[in-house]
Each structure stands twice: as C-alpha cells, then as structure tokens.
Design a protein around this nucleic acid. Structure first.
Length: 573
RNA sequence: GCGCCCGUGGUGAAAUGGAUAUCACAACAGUCUUCGGAACUGUUGUUGCAGGUUCGAGUCCUGCCGGGCGCACCA
C-alpha cells in the first residue's frame, strides 16, 4: 500500500513539476495524523513561490482526482503536511496474507548479490572474555543478521589474539606460578580465570620494574620465534584453554563463525606486506621502527614494525584485512566491529589499505561501539577490574532461575530457559541503544526483566503462543483467505506488524539494530494491549479466526525481529 | 595542547531537519471472577548555555561550559 501511494504521488508531482525525488512517505508519530504522511509541500513550496498550504492543496486536489484504491482519505494538517489514511480492510487483509507467508515474513532479497564479511568479538587468548566482548558479539551478530535478512551473503569471522606482548605478560607470570597451573581435569572456566589472573600480574610486573619489562620483552620475542620448548608448552596449553572456552561461549550466544583467522598467522603476513610497501614508500623508517606517517593525512602516526623487528597490532591488522579479500574474493564489503576507542586507529588502517589497494580500502568499514562502563569508571582487563561474560551470565541466570522456580520445569528445561532469557536480557540491553554509545552496567540488576527489556519481548511471544495453543484446542483456525469476518476498525497492532519489512530495510541500510529493538518494544506493547482488550480464543466470537491470524502474524513478526537481534524465544518461561 | 565523539524528565535511553519530543525504570493512582500479572490503564516531570542557518532545529553551523576516547613501538 505504501508503494501504491508513493507511485501515485510521484505522478502527481511530475504533473505539477515537482521533482519526484523529493517525495518521502513517513509514518507519522501520532497515529491520529494518518497512516502515512508527506512533507513534499513544505519542502518545495518556496522554490515554487507558493505557501506550503497552497501547494499542499494543489497536490491534494490532483491526488484525489484519481484516488488509489487503498486510500480512504487525504488531508492537510499543521504547517502543510499531507496525511493519508488507508482503508482498514487493507490492513486486516494484509495480516491474513502474512500468516500465509509464514516464517519468511520481513525477509527481502533487496541486498542479493552483496557479499559481506563481518569480523567481531575478537577475544584475546590468555585474557578473560569480558562483557566488552559480549557487546562486540551482540552487535556484530545483529548487523550480520540484518544483512542476511535482506538477502546478502554473509561470512562471519573471528580474529582471536594469540600472539603479542599481552601473552608474554601472562606466560611470564605462569612461569612464576608453575605449581598453581590447573590440572587437565578442572573446569575450563577455572583454567581461563587462572590465565586472567596471570595476565594481571604480568601487567603489574611489567610496569613496576624495568628488569621485568626487559624480561617480558625478551620472552615476547621467544614466543614469536618459538625458540623455547618449555615456553611453547605453556603457550600451547593456555591458547588451547582459551579457544575452547571461546567456543563454548559462542555456542551459548548463538554465533556460528565461518572461520577464524589468528593473529599469530597474520604476524608474518603483516610483516611481509609492511616491508614490501616500505620499499614503495607507503611506510618510512623512523627511530629504528617502521611507521606510517599519519600526519601527512591529518591522522596519527602509527608504528607497524617495532624497533625490535616485531610486527605490531597495526601490521597484523593490515595483513588480516588483505587476507580477508584473498580468502573471500567475492567480498564487496568488509565490516569490522570493535570498541570505539579504536576509531582513530582504524582511520589510519583504512588510509593505509587505500594506499596499498584502493579497492580494499573503500570496501573496508569499521564500526566502533561504545563501552561497558561501571558507575566507578572504565572497565579494564589490565587491572583485573572486569566483569567476565561468565560472571554476568551466571548472575542473571540466577535471577531468572528464582523467577521460574516452582513452575514445574525439569532441571534441563529450567537450565535452557534461564540461559535463553539471560542472554536475551543482556543482548537487548546492548542493542536497544545506538551502537556508538556507552552502556552503563552498574550491576547485574541493571538488566531488567520488565518494560523495555528482552524478557518482556520473549514473554509476549510465549504468551501469544500459549493463546494459539488454546485456540487449537478450541478448534479455531486462522483463515486461508480474507473471506472471513474482519474487524471494522483495525488496531495499532495490525499497523505495526505491516511496517516490519520497512523497519528491517532501514535498520540494515543504516546499520542501526536499535531501530529494530525500539520497534519490537512498541510491537509487544501493542500486542499486550490488544490481548488485554480482546479475547482471542473464544469459539463464540465471529472474529475469532481473524484474531488467531493476527496473533500468528504477531508471533512471526516478533520471532523474526528477535532473530535479527540474535535473541531466541523459549517455548515456555 | 591537537583530533574525534557525547551532553534529552530523578535514572537509563529513543527520535531519516518535521506536527503536541517517544519509551522504560522510579514515584503516585488505578484495572482484572478472563486465553500466562515478566501484563494493562492513567498522573507528575526533559532537549547544558549563548548566538546563527531554515518555512521548521534535540538534530546542521559558530562560540562557551561539562564529560569520554585517542594521539610512536600495548591490542
């Protein structure tokens, strides 16, 4: 129906010599203003030497000469908005067709032919997987699913850090605490917690004493060169522990990476590329290091090869982002999700990529997300002042368990439900706001179960499904076509459901999952309100089949929307 | 010091340059003999300051005040 109005408005505009490109159909914030509105008159009035109202009147006069079938009325309001009211029957007919479309509803092939790589989460071996990684994961997963929902081919990759000074710091401390290294049989969480502790100790030692610093720097070189068997053994052990732990977390969070590229693999690659382009002048030598002179481009200067001859993070990332295009040649967009503290750094990287390969440079995009904060300040894995993903998950699971206690779930059921709800609550808290902003995590208690929350959304679906079960028992079926009793007036619920494809398209174009989150909250509210005012599964109600269809359409829309956010829906809760 | 980002009710957030700034939490007042109360309905209360651009500014521009992040061998 939107297209129908849009098309007609376009031909009207052409007739009045208004550029059709200036047409924009919006959903008015206040539903009383109508189903669609356009600011075309206000935007063009001045150019045409008319007042906005006069122009609006001309447009409306022309528009109503041959009124599209979908439109009930057109009116002018406020400073010159043109508001369109769509016939209610169109909404209810569309609801029935959505039920037929089923699980596909909202998906489109508008981005078919796009091949996008998403790199996100990027945890560090030998360090804890903290809530910052959770944040990157939630955002990257959601962005990739948005692309997928619009028909793009998506490749998800992870770039775990398994080489570098931070690892030398951990191993240095491990050597000091050999007797405390966890045995093979202990839980993986305990092993990685031990690594985290070693890292903190290594950091403190590195900063405390110059001799420690020298030792750790030397150890770093040993690790790069794999020149000591005892060091290699510790390295392999710790690396394996971390990676195993990551796999478990990804599975819980619902991320399936298509591949991992390791920092250690990229070290020689980055080194080689940097040297090659040192020769061609992209990089220069300075104080014994190889650097990129960012100042020449209004950016920071960054070191790519250290004066000790080791590739820095910069060189390794360079290798990574070139390797991505070698491994996946069809790629036309490569998205990297990291914390926004790296924004300036990624501007440098993008510049270097452009200088090396224009094509790769233009196709690579960095998205910086905000940070997880405490009231007390920034979280830091260097000082051990972190909330680990594991801690947060178990705290919230605990709260969920208490809530569902006594509802007759088996231990396994309760376990699964708690996990789905806990993860939904965390992901929603991250995705409901703009990606660039910080998320304040005062305590686990800040993850709410009510109102503007993931569990509220999940609950609305569970409840709707429960109603559908009852309808089934009563023998009420959703109609196969629109030849049933339809409501005279349609509610906000119908109108919101039909907007879903538009919402997804916009959220994908702008990479703004919060638009989906925001929409879903309104949608859930509309359903809960509908539910409170209408009995859906009532055999004696002539509208019952339609209401069942509406409930089904709601379940599909909400489930698909939650999928985009990476949030699962439990069967019961 | 330079650069980038951000200041929205008591709190946390939303708002492709559009209409009366939206939502949740908290507070207060209600609803339900109901298909799941993690619900629904209502009340109170908000764009840091000063200019400018625009038919129209939370949004764009300038200055100020306040905060965050980044600026050479960490990632």
């Amino acid at each position: 129906m939107k297209q129908e109005i849009n098309k007609h408005l376009e031909s009207v505009a052409t007739m009045l010599a208004i550029p059709p490109s200036s047409i924009k159909l919006d959903y008015p914030e206040n539903p009383e203003h109508g189903d669609f509105s356009s600011n075309i008159a206000m935007a063009n009035a001045k150019k045409m030497g008319l007042s906005p109202k006069d122009l609006a009147e001309k447009i409306v006069a022309e528009f109503t000469k041959d009124m599209p079938a979908a439109v009930e009325s057109v009116s002018i309001a406020g400073p010159g908005f043109i508001n369109f009211k769509v016939k209610d029957a169109l909404f209810s007919e569309e609801i029935i067709s959505i039920v037929k479309v089923g699980a596909e509803y909202g998906w489109s092939d508008g981005e078919k032919g796009r091949n996008a790589i998403f790199e996100y989460t990027d945890p560090n071996t030998f360090k804890v997987f903290h809530i910052g990684h959770l944040m990157s994961n939630a955002i990257g997963e959601s962005l990739s699913r948005l692309d997928q929902s619009q028909g793009a081919a998506v490749t998800r990759i992870c770039y775990p850090s398994d080489i570098g000074l931070h690892i030398a710091k951990s191993i240095w401390a491990m050597e000091k605490h050999r007797s405390e290294i966890p045995a093979d049989g202990v839980a993986i969480q305990e092993k990685t917690a031990f690594l985290g502790k070693m890292y903190v100790e290594g950091v403190q030692a590195y900063e405390a004493l110059a001799t420690n610093k020298d030792d750790i720097d030397a150890l770093n070189k040993v690790i790069y060169e794999k020149s000591s068997d005892t060091v290699n053994a510790l390295y392999e052990k710790g690396r394996a522990w971390s990676l195993k732990h990551f796999e478990l977390l990804y599975a819980r969070l619902g991320t399936k990476f298509d591949g991992s590229i390791f920092e250690s693999e990229m070290a020689p690659v980055g080194l080689e590329i940097t040297k090659k382009f040192l020769a061609s002048g992209v990089f220069v030598e300075s104080e014994g290091a190889v650097v990129f002179k960012g100042e020449d481009h209004g950016l920071h200067t960054r070191v790519f090869i250290s004066s000790k001859g080791l590739p820095t993070y910069e060189a390794k990332e360079l290798g990574l982002n070139i390797t991505k295009f070698e491994k996946y040649p069809a790629t036309n967009e490569s998205v990297i999700v990291t914390a926004s503290e790296q924004n300036d750094y990624f501007k440098v990287l993008k510049k270097v990529l452009s200088l090396i390969d224009e094509n790769i440079g233009t196709k690579t995009h960095h998205i910086g997300h905000g940070m997880m904060r405490f009231a007390s300040g920034k979280m830091s894995s260097r000082t051990g002042k972190v909330i680990t993903a594991e801690d947060l998950l178990s705290d919230i699971r605990e709260m969920v368990s208490e809530k569902i206690n006594g509802r007759g779930f088996s231990v396994e059921e309760a376990d699964e439900i708690s996990d789905i709800i806990a993860i939904g609550a965390i992901k929603y808290t991250i995705l409901r706001q703009a990606i660039g902003g910080d998320v304040i995590f005062d305590s686990a208690a800040s993850v709410s179960f009510e109102g503007d929350s993931g569990p509220y959304l999940q609950y609305s679906v569970v409840r709707a499904n429960s109603v559908l079960d009852k309808a089934k028992q009563e023998g009420i079926e959703a109609p196969a076509d629109a030849k049933v009793v339809l409501p005279e007036r349609v509610s906000l619920l119908e109108k919101l459901i039909t907007r879903f494809p538009d919402i997804l398209e916009r959220a994908r174009n702008e990479y703004t999952p919060q638009h989906v989150a925001n929409y879903l909250i309104n949608l859930a509210g509309a359903f809960n309100s509908y539910y409170a005012n209408n009995i859906i599964a009532d055999k004696n109600e002539p509208l019952a089949p339609y209401r069942v269809a509406l409930t089904k359409a709601f379940v599909t829309t909400m489930t698909n929307g939650l999928w985009v956010l990476g949030i699962r829906v439990p069967k019961k809760m």
